[in-house]
Design a binder for these strands. Structure first.
Lengths: 361, 361
DNA sequence: TTGTAAGCGTTATCAT
DNA sequence: ATGATAACGCTTACAA
């Protein structure tokens, strides 16, 4: 007779008994137990085969693989995540997908994330109240995330960092404990504005865009004012506030142009600029003869518009891709010191800023 | 001495002993156990409070909530998914995000999915080999998914359906066991082509687009040929193959137009059409005087191009939103019979198809 | 109203 | 090379 201490440990999986009999039900996928039973091995061996862990005999391996494909077994992702303590997924948070900018950024991001074996969750905040909760919820599903400007406040980001979540911010000022990726907004604004003032000789400017809402815009505003000051041109006291949207651009431009039209109108993005062109033409102003207009982003429409829109081309896809790479490094634990990077942009001269000698459209 | 059968069940959670002492480590979030201990209740009660399940005394509830916020506790998503047997997430699979079409669809989708309390995973296939594996991997992370055309074969979709995964296809022919959502491609192609033949009197046509690659395109081709036949206009034997891209459109149009230019060129989307306009102008053909060109999608660039591009406007966002709704119904188990829906489109007449009496741009 | 503990489906440690 | 089983962190039936 055995003493209590000699009694074999009761199996933790008492409930496993009677597991059979629920096969074939649609929507109920098989588990590692069914595969193990079918193959006549333990679940540990099945797990080894699935994960490619070394140390499984070739014929055992074959047998398991056959059962796997017979039963069309797919491991449960939640169980795996729970056991591994990771999600093999990352997230990206942006304000909205409308307009090509965010779509391109996300595309660049997804591509790299997929290459590094990570699924991608997206979240748009739409400037909604619940943004904080949604972002925190997302944080529970991923191993790290990228957050774009104009989504949630720095307090939320600090919370994420304090939870130990790898974080990269994009098109947003750096925050403690996170990497950042930005386009060269100030430099390109400076170059663009200098081109307008120096090369075309424009002496009266306005800036259309909401500098308070976006770090991109406020950087562009800063480069704009700096260039004007350096060129000895009067500097407007503030940007003309305007959301990132074509209709808003048209409306804001209409109000501005009726009143006291400047000679050159620097818009915070192409959508605003295209709206402004429409407004200018409706008011009988010729672009660029009466009014120069420029944008940002180099959308397809900028190339096809009449007149062609002078703008700044941003490496949108590269921004997303770089953010994905930096996030991957952080998640993999390859690096801890924050890294802040600025990607170069390019001035694209077309007809809307004034006539160029070598103009071709 | 007790018989074996009388031995009390060994607790499943032997390892819980000694759980304390690992607090404060960054990146290691607290669990329901810490909260329970802090609040002086059991984990079941914490769970009830977190889930809002009825039957918790107000003061107990308060105490728990305080501990939750003290410890900044967020439930583990994988553990929750494992226990609940659901992910509270859904996925959307598309070929690529470039161009505004997919971005808009995804945006409409995400918005509705978020409203129904579901996170959104995205997957782009890029026409890659690994598409099947990626899609199956995604399937393990979601409660249901939407698959767009030109991503994976019907065999993969059948596999998903047989696994019991709720499925909606978008811009793709219906498959057994899944809902489908499409735009009225054939009808709008018919209307567009009839407009060109009847209203503008064009008698020689070509169609630019790869009908084999996309159900959208093959439906458009069908409506196109039907309209020509009904108008008594010679029907081309086949589409001029061309990918969905501006450069490809330009290249394909160049080859076509040098040879034997038709009077009207119907393109499968706006990007192709805009490329074709560029090609036509490079060859000295005037649009629409020498050659009418039309597109599909009504991109921003179609509105701003010179000449304005006649095109078909699709409810892209609504397509995504509807797919999300249908998927939600399926996931919730509200409905089992497949539903196939076709959303209306709209012909947008601009200058590129010929001169209209009431033309305004 | 609250607690106990089984169960979710994996991974990985430790024996053998 | 393989098996037994603890552990992952929750939800929920059942008991009290």
């Amino acid at each position: 007779m055995k003493a209590l201490t000699e009694i074999p440990q009761a199996p933790g999986r008492i409930g496993r008994i009677g597991r059979a009999g629920r096969t074939g039900r649609a929507g109920r996928s098989d588990t590692i137990y069914e595969v193990a039973q079918q193959a006549g091995v333990s679940i540990a061996t099945v797990s080894r085969v699935m994960r490619g862990t070394a140390g499984v005999a070739p014929d055992t391996r074959e047998r398991v693989l056959r059962s796997v494909s017979d039963l069309r077994y797919t491991p449960s992702r939640s169980a795996r995540s729970l056991a591994e303590g990771r999600h093999a997924a990352s997230g990206i948070v942006f304000p909205d997908l409308s307009g090509p900018y965010f779509a391109e950024v996300v595309l660049g991001y997804e591509e790299v994330a997929a290459e590094t074996g990570r699924s991608v969750l997206i979240l748009t905040t739409h400037g909604r109240e619940a943004a904080r909760e949604r972002v925190l919820d997302l944080a529970a599903r991923v191993d790290g995330m990228v957050v774009l400007g104009r989504t949630v406040g720095d307090d939320v980001l600090a919370e994420l960092v304090s939870k130990g979540l790898p974080l990269v911010v994009l098109a947003r000022y750096p925050v403690e404990g996170a990497d950042s990726v930005n386009a060269a907004n100030e430099a390109s604004a400076y170059a663009l504005t200098t081109h307008l003032a120096r090369d075309h000789g424009h002496r009266s400017f306005a800036f259309l865009g909401d500098a308070g809402a976006s770090t991109d815009t406020s950087d562009r505003w800063r480069g704009f004012t700096q260039a004007l000051a350096d060129c000895g041109v009067p500097v407007p006291s503030a940007p003309v506030p305007c959301p990132f949207d074509e209709d808003d651009g048209r409306a804001a431009a209409e109000r501005l142009l009726v009143d006291r039209p400047p000679r050159a109108l620097v818009c915070a993005n192409d959508e605003i600029a295209l709206g402004a062109i429409t407004a200018a033409e409706a008011l009988g102003l010729r672009v660029p003869d009466d009014l120069a207009i420029t944008g940002w982003d180099d959308l397809m429409a900028a190339r096809h518009s009449r007149p062609g829109l002078t703008t700044v081309s941003q490496p949108m896809r590269a921004l997303g891709a770089l953010a994905a790479h930096r996030l991957h490094e952080r998640v993999a634990g390859d690096r801890n010191e924050p890294r802040h990077e600025v990607l170069p942009t390019q001035l694209v001269q077309r007809a809307s800023c004034g006539h160029h000698p070598e103009e071709n459209r």
